[in-house]
Design a binder for these strands. Structure first.
Lengths: 151, 151
DNA sequence: GGCCCATAAGAAAATCATTCTCATTTGCAA
DNA sequence: TTGCAAATGAGAATGATTTTCTTATGGGCC
């Protein structure tokens, strides 16, 4: 059984537990998400899934994302453009660094920063429930001889 | 000259330098922002300003926010609901903690976290351009004798 | 295997923040 | 003052997301 199939089976049992159905559409969308190694938005997911089932509608993608999110099967992020992007959630917690030039999204995690956030919240009298941390950066050039103009 | 008037004067000279005009509407909106101690959205700013000038339109608020932002006079934030909120920018950098129960926004700053973010970006080969950090927390109850049920 | 019906899907309309268009007004420099 | 580019007001347009409404279907039960 592939990792993807395992994820689908887990989700199916979660749905069953909640009295919800495993439909063809949900299975398809889940498969698309499981196979994605990026952070697609609703339209991107729709496009990929539509290739396998041209009767699928965008509404169903949005609805399914809600179900998946409420079951904890995916995570939703909205970076600077405000559009919701999704990724499957069966992995450890991480934050994101976005390349401001290419838009590429790089995942990272840091126990130090997690701990620091918890401490800051505590100092303000709060218990940390969740957080959002996005770094926006530009690729560093490796040190090298500067190119001469019209060499 | 009040702090608000000083901010308005500074902004006026910034505009002049950019070949833009200081209009009644911009003056009014800037005043509303300078007097705000919260993080209002466009509609909130419009409502407050409208009380002083009922000819103001919401479009002008949005347009003005763009000008103000491009001049560095305000900062725009979008928390979890995706709606843009604004605050005047002539203060040191800070991040936000949002009370998940009340929606209250608390500002904080931490050199340690700034430095840590810079280091994390560097380790990934990036130069940090900017970041977004939001903590979502719940107020801690002060320790006390637990209330007995039907005491 | 077929039935029942609550849940889900498809299609399109509705929503809501934000942006754009366009006709009119207004800073402000000469 | 005058001229005109920049700005405004009002409303239409946009675009992501949600909702409505009618039809289809998953899956427990016989």
């Amino acid at each position: 059984m592939s990792e993807t199939d395992r994820r689908i089976a887990v989700f199916e049992s979660q749905l069953k537990g909640a009295g919800l159905r495993m439909t063809q559409q949900r299975r398809l969308i889940l498969r698309v998400l499981a196979e994605a190694d990026d952070h697609p938005d609703a339209k991107g997911i729709f496009t990929r899934a539509f290739a396998h089932d041209p009767t699928l509608s965008l509404s169903t993608v949005y609805r399914t994302m809600k179900v998946l999110e409420s079951q904890g099967a995916i995570e939703r992020h909205a970076f600077e453009d405000g559009i919701s992007r999704y990724e499957h959630a069966d992995q450890e917690h991480h934050d994101h660094l976005i390349d401001v030039d290419s838009g590429e999204v790089i995942e990272f995690s840091s126990d130090a920063i997690e701990e620091l956030q918890r401490r800051i919240a505590a100092e303000l009298g709060y218990e940390l429930v969740r957080h959002r941390l996005e770094l926006y950066g530009r690729k560093k050039q490796p040190a090298r001889k500067p190119a001469r103009k019209r060499g």
